[in-house]
């Protein structure tokens, strides 16, 4: 994802702003990292350039 996407992304749960933590980037493109809600603290992973902003209990690793 491009870093300038931060202007329009928000937490899917409480709609507050997100903070970007970058693990890997290629120019403007964030390849890996996480988006952390400045209000509730929920962390949303960025993997393979695509942020996973599903609510935590809809994620792949959520307990069934």
């Amino acid at each position: 994802m491009d870093e300038d996407l931060m202007d329009i992304l928000c937490c899917p749960l409480d709609k507050h702003e997100l903070e970007l933590e970058v693990d890997e980037r290629e120019g403007e493109e964030i390849i890996a990292g996480r988006l952390i809600c400045t209000e509730c603290g929920e962390a949303y992973p960025i993997e393979d350039g695509i942020p996973n902003l599903l609510p935590p209990d809809m994620r792949e690793d959520a307990p069934a």
């Binding site: 992304l9 928000c10 709609k15 695509i50 996973n52 609510p55």
Partner: peptide, 26 residues
Amino acid sequence: RSRLSDVGEVTLLQGDAAGLPLAAGT
């Protein structure tokens, strides 16, 4: 992503239709 590799300004997000991760009015 593989289908749109040659299309310009496209950004992909994983998310839920009932809880959009986008700011209001955008």
